[in-house]
Structures are given as C-alpha cells and as structure tokens.
Design a protein around this nucleic acid. Sequence first.
DNA 1: GCCGTTTTCGGCCCGACTGTTTTCAGTCG
Length: 593
Amino acid sequence: MSRNDEIATLLEEFADLLDANGVEYKPRAYRRAAENIRDYPGAIEGLAAEGEDSVGEIDGVGDAISSKVVEYFETGEIEELTELREELPVEMDALTAVEGVGPKSVGSLYEALGITTLDELEAAAEAGEIQEVSGFGAKTEQNILDNIDFAREAHERSLLGEARPYGDQIRAYMAAGDAVEECALGGSIRRWRPTIGDVDVLVGSTDAEAVIERFAGWDELDRVIESGDTKASAYADDVRVDLRVVDPTEFGAALQYFTGSKDHNVAVRNRAIERDLKVNEYGVFREVRSTSSSRTASDDDVEGVEDDDQRAGELVASESEEAVYDALGMEWVPPELRENRGEVEAAADGSLPDLLAEGEVRGDIHTHTNWSDGGNTIAEMVEGAADFGHDYLAVTDHATGPGMVGGVGVSDEQLREQMGEVESVAADADIDVFTGVEANIAADGTLSVADDLLADLDVVVASSHAALDGDGTDRLVTAAEHPDVNVIGHPTGRYLNRREGLDVDIDRLADVAAANDTALEINANPARLDLGGGAVKQAIETGANVVINTDAHSPRNFDLLRYGVHTARRGWAETDDVLNTRDADSLRKFLDA
DNA sequence: GCCGTTTTCGGCCCGACTGTTTTCAGTCG
C-alpha cells in the first residue's frame, strides 16, 4: 500500500466515525479528500515534508485535513482520530460490510448495546436485542442475521476476466425477454476496469414488472436482496448483479448515468450546470425560468405544480448517449475513458483520441510452449495464432533464472536448440514466426540469458518474476537500456487481488524505453492487466510504445487479447502507439533497430 | 471541512429501496 493509500484509508475511517456520530457534511469532505489523495499521482509523503501548504494543493484538501496529514507523518498518528476511535471502539470495516449496515447504524448499536464486532452483532441479533433499539425492527434484525456470514467472507472484487463472460451471459438472457426493448451492461464492467464490484444490467422497457419478474426467475440467482418497481439486486455465485429498468425513451440518459465513473459523471454534471442544464438518469433538462421563479415553499400546497421534480424543465436529450453528450457540447465519450482523466475537456474541444479498436492488433509477441510452462507445442501455438487471425507470433519461453522454479525455464543451450525448431516450424507456417525468449530481470536489473544469445533472438521480452516488492524503477530502467531487450513484460508484476507488485516511476521508465526502442507491455492476462490504464496513458504521453500481449500458455489464451485492447483504450492508446498493430515487416524493423 | 467569474458564508449529487415510521432515516450505488 502506498502512503497515499495509507492516508486515504485513515481519512475514510475518520469519515465513518464522524458519520457514526451523526456529524453532517464533514464526512463527505473527508471522503473527497481521501479519494483525491489516493488518486494523486505524486507521493503524499513528499508534499507532507514540504509542509501543509503543499498538501493543501490537492483538490478537496484544506487547512484542517492538510495539518492532519502533516501531523501523521511527523508523529505517526492523528490525535483527533485516536480520540474518535476511543469514543467509538468498533470494528467499523467489518460491521459495515454487512449489507444494510452503515456507519450510523454502527454508532446507534454501539450506543444502545455496546456492539463492537461481528460476533457481538450476531449474538445481539440472535438474542432479539437489536429490534428493541429505536430505529431498528424485526426485519432489520433478520437482515443482519441473513447477511452476516456473507460479510465475514470479506468479499474482494471479481476480476474483469471472470465477471465479463458472466455479464455477457446475463445480458443475453435478459435481452431475450419479450418485454425487453434494449439491454446493456453498465458500470465498471462496461468501462473494462480490471476489477468489478458488481455486474450492472440496464434494460429499456415499458413493462418493468415483467422485466423484474424475468430477472428474478433467472436460474443462476442464489438470492434476491431487493426487488422494487424499477430495480432489483441479487447474488449469483457470490457476484452481485444489479438490474435497472428504464423507459426506452430514457435509455441513453440512464446508460450514461449508470456507466459512470462517479468522477466522470460529477464532471459532466458540473459542465451541465455551467450551461443552465441539469443531467440525471432521466435526461438532460433545461431550467424553465418562468415557472421555476415561483418555486417557493408554498408551492407544496398548490395543486398542479410539477411534482415530478427529476424530469422538471424542458427535455433536451435522453434517448441515446450520443444525444446526451451532444446536448452538453461534447463528443460521445468511449466508456473506457470515463474516469475523469481529462476526457470531459477533450470531448468538449473535440480532441478525444482516435482509440485503438479490437481487431487492429496483428500478432502476439509474448507466448509460451511446452518447452517451458506452456501446454502446447510450437506448431500448435503457431496454428492457434493463425486460426485466431494473427499475422505473426513470437515464441518467448521462460529462461531459467530468478523466479523460475521447478525447472520451468529453459537454459541457454536449450534456447539455441529451440531456435532451430522455431525456424523449421516457421518455414511451413502461414504466418510469420519470430524466435524469442522471456528473460528474467534480477533485482539488480541484469538478465538471466547470455548477451550473445539475446543478440541472436528476434524478440527479447524481459520480465521480473521474483523480488516483486519495493521500488522497481532502477531495475526496469536497467533492463530497458539493454540493447537487445525489445519488451518489458508485465512491468509491475502485479497480481490483481493478490499482490501489488513493484512501485514503478512510469514517467522515468517510459522516457528510457522511448530512447532505447523498448516497448512496455500491456499484459492481457486478466489476473495481471499490467500495465494498467493509468500507467499506459502516462507511458504514451511520455512517448513510449506499448505492446499488447496475451502471455498465452495455450491457443485458447489468444482470446484474452480483448482485455489487453480495452486496457490500452483505458490508457487513451491510438493505433500508432501500439507496437503490434504494425505488420510483420515493420515490426521487424523496430526489433532490429 | 471545503469551496467560490454571481458567494469568504451558505451551500454541499441525488434517486431508489427498505424498514420504521405516520413523513422520514439510513444505506447503497
């Protein structure tokens, strides 16, 4: 966890404790500050060392919070937070993980019953004590009992690679319903985020009841959490699925709204406000001055006054996303860009990138065979790549060295032998086949394969497989400077939900990579997606090439390419930024340079 | 607690759902 994360987590805890105490507005300020500190690209400890004014440069961080940040770095604690913890000594994260229990409930239950842990919460619920507390009742108590085991499992987010096929399945099922006019996935799954909190399904229909009924009847659902007139939530195999039903005429506005991200939508709404427009999930509306001027408290008593506040004003757009953005003077924003990283401004002045498209990648230059830990022969992998539609393939089996245990990697001698075999397969192949290796980068940046051999191979991918913590910038820079290294493979070495991987100064690495004709990989394996979108954007802006590889260990892994393509799009990649959109000849020129 | 080309004070994103309540609070996304 970076120190930015560390501070952000503390501020969020601060917010929860304030919330539990019934404090208004402050919690939101703390959460906003936490979010901005977490997203801040630089190191918070550096700002803290410079003093409160520097910390206060971060959006949403003012005098009070910046002094707490500095205090934390100087003394190791935030005194006010310590006091709040003493006043309310509860396991906040564990308790609020129970569906339906938030900070305020935690505060009330501590006040009334002294509950501090999940075990105490469960005991109190079983004893029937919770329904006696003011504001709680029998149903709330039963809900707590129903949800407490689930909360104990401490759910992590699903990988995109697991959730996406699952979302496609749900969408297909819903789309086949008679009452369903339109159906789409929204939320983070539509933005292709590496991890997914839940699967959002949006349906356009004039018969919401039938749609909700169809949803509830889906075979895969384990249990339904809530089911109202226009939305329902359920769990299927521990994945939360949220359904929304909207009128087909408002489908575009709803899809825009539910695709997010939250930050993107806030920026879009602010742009609307500047234009005297209002955006919500029902559409874009223009304030109607003549009637809104009479909007006073007495209106509540007047019959015939617009009671449908959400749709108040003159409707400007709602049916399609394109119309919604157009009404705000913006180009349609591809979902992968909707993270408030400058896309709102770019869409407004017509400078959105012309993003890489699926189908433009022409080959894979990081793959494995049964010479190392792959499951197939060189010929099978080459045939698989051709069937997939690739123009070329590089065989880059693991070399022995740091991180390659159990005899997985091949020796220099075996590599020499393999080169001959790759060339003989290549002679009969329909596509171009490159020799190669995935060499290991030791902690000091040196490689595990002899230089003369590296010079003879077409493609050298250099990757770290051991000592994957701490700052890896020097290590990767050293490897990128090696004259025969073409690709830095899965640069941070992260494993989503399992390990963070190396801290890398992407700007510095990308600078060196650009100067040395070394490409930085977007590893399309859903457990990695490394580099991620934010880092890709930085690398490209610095001038480096990226390359999208699947790291395939079998022919069916070539299908994972789409996760890499959409990750590249999240990094604003255009076709020319991506090395393997080039044809084989021009790729060869890059490799030989 | 933060923020400001209509404000240094008075607002803070907001709608749906549930459950506990007789008009609203808490939670969630």
